[in-house]
Amino acid sequence: MKDDNRLITECREGHTAAFGELVARYQDRLFNTVLRLVDNAEDARDVVQEAFLHAYQSLRTFKGDSLFFTWLYRIAFNTAISSRRKKRIVLSINPTGDDGKAIDPLDPAETNRPGHALEMAEEERQVHAALAKLSSEHRAVLVMKDMDGMKYEDIAEILGVPIGTIRSRLHRARLEMRDLLQKLAEPKDQA
């Protein structure tokens, strides 16, 4: 398998198919992240598609100082934010994160345990609901850190803010998320 830099060089030489390989390589990862930022599969798809197109158009400006995915992520993140601003998306508390379509885990074996699917669906509903109540800033850092496993340094680079800001933003986001999840769990516990 060709590495990213090789594919990028080929793209710059005019081989569009090489860019197709990069899209195939990162589309799922990017889509899952963006899905948590815009909370709608159709919008997420649009955002990812637009991000790839922007990336292709800006490929000459990619200097390789950071990983290609980090660079791509920054483009996608900015696209997602502008998409949300434009649409003023009201986040739905939807356990599936889509228009009623269930999200299939990549590993179907997880669903084999009896009751597991229900538990997961409920937990996911709560996480979604809590995420939906967070501000864009808090939601973004949580998604980048927990879903994408990024370091503070990478998050700071993507968002263009100092590492200290990321540290305090994540701190507040985690505490807020904890409070929200506790509140969402309360009615069930009381019942």
């Binding site: 899209v23 899952n32 885990p105 997961m120």
Partner: peptide, 15 residues
Amino acid sequence: KLKQLPRRKVEPSLV
């Protein structure tokens, strides 16, 4: 909980 949120595949592919 965030880490374990299900991941989906983009279908159909965006390529």
